Amino acid sequence: MSKKWLVGIAGLMLSVTLVACGGKSVATTNGGKITQDEYYSSMKETSQGKQTLQQMILNKVLEKQYGDKVESSEVNAQLNKYKSQYGSQFKTVLQSQGMTEKSLKEQLRSNLLLKQAVIANTDFSDKELKKQFKDYQPKVTVNQITTSSKDKAEKVIKELDNGKKFTDLAKKYSTDSSTKNKGGRIDKFDNTNSSLDSKFKSAAFKLKNGEYTKKPVKTQSGYQVIQMVNHPDKGNYKQHTNELKEQMADSKMNDSSSLQKVVKKVLKKGDVDIQDNDLKNVLADYLK
């Protein structure tokens, strides 16, 4: 998100009358002070100011209606995923987006609250749940070894066939520096994971506990050998209703039409009263 200083000629020539305006000062200059009232009046006329108010209103009503359904641990877990993904570049990425760790956590919580609103305001039929269940996979735990060539991956598989330990081979052969010293262990994942190569997931889900891929899996990362550590029984769709609803809600979060319908319901239930006449229609696009 880029930020620009929009300072026109009129902004540089502060009128002396600004000094006489009421309200607490936001800033002072040798040409006068800028009060909270002035700043507010200026900001509310901008699209950014209106968007900020819309988000603040939505956050308030979401927190009231669904705050007890989102744990701080869930927010922290998502935050830690970003930290793990970007590593030492995490703060730099935040700065490039004009964000802080605090504002990112607030955004993550807002998204989780909105997701709960989607779940609560959506009727999931048995037909839809069954359809989602076809692609459903519970979270699995695997180890993996990444190599730069097919020959080297085949060598790893041959050594596994001869009884060598997967963890030892990961340390010896894997080019993935983030997992090789952990025996190739990666974070648990299910069918909704978007960070892993689809070929990797497909090969992994076919494995039973203790099994490893007998042929190298060609992915964007290289040639990989995968070992299944824990593959929970899939069971039937009724046993995973909550997970299925969560997955379907994630899809609806990317559908602007579905999302707007949910936001409309949430705002109406929130009994919102805009007290500034100039902003009476700030929610019009969401409530129409």
Rank of each mutant, 00 (worst) to 15 (best):
N80V: 00
K102C: 05
N277C: 00
T52L: 15
A10Q: 11
P216R: 01
S148N: 10
L108V: 11
G67Y: 05
K182G: 06
M1E: 14
D161L: 05
G31I: 03
L114A: 02
S47N: 13
S178G: 04
S72H: 04
K214M: 13
K180P: 13
F200S: 04
D123K: 07
A284M: 10
K60V: 03
Y223L: 11
N143R: 14
E106P: 07
E71I: 05
Q36Y: 03
D176M: 11
V7K: 06
S103C: 03
V16H: 00
K105F: 06
S194K: 04
A284D: 15
Q48E: 15
L129E: 04
K206L: 00
D273P: 09
K83P: 02
G11W: 09
F133D: 00
S221F: 09
D197K: 01
V19F: 12
G67N: 10
D285G: 10
L114G: 00
K33M: 10
M248A: 08
I226Y: 06
K252S: 12
K234D: 08
G22K: 14
Q144M: 12
L267F: 14
M228L: 02
K180Y: 10
L113R: 12
M43S: 14
N236G: 09
G23C: 01
N193P: 03
K268R: 15
S125L: 06
D187S: 07
A117Q: 02
K164G: 02
G67K: 04
E63K: 11
D151E: 15
K188V: 04
S194F: 04
K252M: 13
K264Q: 11
G49V: 06
K201F: 06
N181H: 06
N281L: 06
D176H: 09
V266H: 08
K91F: 05
D176P: 09
K171S: 10
S73Y: 02
Q48D: 15
E38F: 15
T92Y: 00
K81Y: 05
S258H: 13
V266Q: 07
K288H: 04
L283D: 14
A153W: 02
S177Q: 14
S178F: 08
G270L: 14
T175A: 13
N111S: 13
I34K: 01
S195Y: 10
K91L: 08
V156M: 02
H240Y: 06
N277M: 03
D151P: 07
D250G: 07
K150R: 10
S194Q: 03
K288V: 00
T147M: 04
N111D: 15
S194L: 05
C21S: 11
A170I: 01
S221M: 07
A117I: 01
D168Q: 13
G222C: 02
K69R: 08
I34T: 02
Q239T: 13
K139A: 09
E74F: 14
S256A: 10
D271Q: 15
T122Q: 05
S15C: 03
K152P: 02
T17I: 12
T92W: 01
G31R: 01
V272I: 15
M13G: 02
V93I: 15
K208Y: 09
G49E: 13
G222E: 01
C21A: 07
N80K: 11
Q227S: 12
P216L: 08
S88H: 05
G31H: 01
A20D: 11
I34D: 03
L79H: 10
S257L: 07
Y286K: 13
Q78D: 12
